[in-house]
């Protein structure tokens, strides 16, 4: 085969992307190796994250040097992540479905681009700006009007901010799908005497259901990994499982972001290794969610092809 230097060089450039991804996974695994050995499965089931006594001599457990009394459990953060993202999905799905149907059915074609651009713009607002708005507007509101303790930071504030951030993902996915439903389907449903509500709910929504589910899962992946906004409004709860909507929480991502100082203070480096294991867990969770979104999306394409 002829050697083509240009093709080879752009191929090499494109290989850098998988290389970067593999390097991320590989180094997280290697670096957290000792932590994985030390923690075992307790890592996922323990409630307490305790850095131990960093000023005393380190002790050696299972051949690994750690500060005395250190224990690393991330159950609280796993629960915080899943519950806040789950609630965010519960809030975001009805809102996005409503907004997408309104945009595709009730808005004249001339205004639609403007409104759908507004919805898309929500997705590009930086996470830290959402967090700032959360602190300035949302948290005081929850504290004054909803929370029995008067403290607005916590699970509810995190879920609402997350819901706002993921709504445009679901809404614009659904809007694209709704606009692609063939005109004939709509018109024949109308011709059969269906009301507008029936046309949307019985003729159009079933056709876009798979796409909708794919969009929701994609949004879930984004919510699970969201860091700054949650870090700023979650109240940073550790070592206790959330009991109400107003409990302070931490998600896996926000916990990692907030732990820099304590990680640097550990002379045995064990907390840095444990945090690396935390990051690895977060990566695996989002990978699983995004991969299923991808599978659902490809399934959605098949359905559409079969129907048309």
């Amino acid at each position: 085969m002829k050697i083509r230097p240009f093709r080879l060089s752009v191929f090499a450039l494109s290989l850098l992307i998988p290389t970067a991804l593999c390097a991320v996974v590989l180094f997280l695994v290697i670096y957290s190796g000792q932590a994985i050995m030390f923690n075992g499965l307790h890592f996922l089931t323990d409630v307490n994250w305790n850095l131990g006594d960093m000023y005393d001599d380190p002790v050696t457990v299972h051949g690994v040097s750690v500060p005395g009394g250190a224990e690393y459990g991330i159950l609280v953060f796993i629960v915080g992540t899943l519950v806040s993202s789950g609630l965010a999905i519960l809030i975001a799905v009805p809102l996005s479905i409503g907004a997408a149907i309104f945009l595709s059915e009730a808005v004249p074609g001339k205004i639609r681009p403007v409104l759908s651009m507004l919805v898309e713009l929500i997705a590009v607002v930086p996470s830290v700006v959402f967090g700032l708005w959360g602190i300035a507007v949302l948290v005081p509101f929850i504290g004054h009007h909803l929370s029995p303790t008067g403290n607005g930071y916590g699970l509810l504030a995190s879920s609402i901010v997350l819901a706002l951030m993921i709504t445009p993902i679901i809404a614009s996915t659904l809007l694209d799908a709704l606009l692609q439903v063939p005109k004939e389907n709509r018109e024949s449903a109308f011709a059969l005497g269906a009301t507008h509500f029936e046309v949307v709910s019985k003729a159009m929504m079933p056709m876009v259901r798979a796409t909708l589910v794919g969009g929701i899962v994609l949004a879930l992946g984004r919510a699970l990994g969201e860091t700054m906004a949650v870090l700023m409004v979650s109240g940073g709860g550790i070592n206790i499982l959330p009991t109400s909507l107003f409990s302070p929480i931490s998600t896996i991502a926000s916990f990692v972001a907030g732990q820099l100082d304590s990680a640097e203070a550990d002379p045995t480096n064990m907390s840095v290794r444990a945090l690396s294991e935390v990051a690895l867990v977060l990566f695996l969770i989002t990978l699983a969610v995004n991969a299923s979104a991808k599978l659902l999306a490809s399934g959605a394409l098949n359905v559409r092809k079969r129907q048309s």
Partner: peptide, 11 residues
């Protein structure tokens, strides 16, 4: 590449 896009930035 899509997996890398979906990786949380904190990771």
């Amino acid at each position: 590449s899509d997996v890398l896009t979906g990786t949380p930035s904190i990771v």
